[in-house]
């Protein structure tokens, strides 16, 4: 259509250019145009958090953004976390703690926590709960997710400290 817009966006390190309808939201763009179906859609209303991705380092709900707004941005999705067949330590922490059941919410949590980890802080359990309040999970009851995140943040902070000491 004539009113389509051009976007150029870096997704997981690769440059993507596309012509998109103005009303296409970023989650649908990533899923159906870029083919990264790890980002899920649960409400298209900014509540459930299934669609959380990193845009220029911030965890955002991609259902609330238009694809056109991604022009010039750097996006990271869940597909970027593992290296080859090796899970990212955060993914491993989720696996170890049984922090996923159906797994539909998992990408949203992983990306939320990826942004959180970049802040390099250790957080208390209630703080973690507040930080992830924007992502819903209907299967796990959250405790295992909170545990996985706490362990991961602690391990990351300890690594950082060790590196600084060297």
């Amino acid at each position: 259509m004539t009113d389509d817009v051009d976007v150029t966006v870096t997704v997981n390190g690769e440059t993507v250019t596309a012509r998109v309808p103005p009303r296409l939201h970023a989650a649908d763009f990533l899923r159906h145009r870029v083919g990264l179906t790890g980002t899920h859609v649960g409400c298209e209303q900014g509540v459930c958090g299934m669609c959380t991705v990193l845009v220029d380092g911030d965890a955002v709900k991609s259902c609330l953004l238009f694809a056109a707004q991604l022009d010039g941005c750097t996006v990271r999705t869940v597909e970027s976390l593992a290296t080859g067949d090796r899970l990212h330590p955060l993914q491993q922490a989720f696996k170890d703690a049984h922090a996923l059941q159906c797994g539909f919410c998992t990408p949203g949590f992983l990306m939320t926590v990826t942004a959180l980890t970049d802040r390099g802080e250790r957080l208390s359990e209630p703080e973690i709960r507040e930080e992830i309040a924007g992502v819903l999970c209907r299967c796990t009851g959250y405790d295992p997710i909170v545990k996985a995140i706490a362990r991961h943040l602690d391990a990351t902070a300890a690594d950082d400290a060790a590196r600084a000491a060297r």
Partner: peptide, 17 residues
């Protein structure tokens, strides 16, 4: 869990996928 790796990597296959 057998199911975990694909789900953790965004490689699950849900209907809309």
């Amino acid at each position: 869990r057998k199911e975990d790796d694909r789900l953790l990597r965004g490689d699950g296959r849900f209907t809309d996928d």
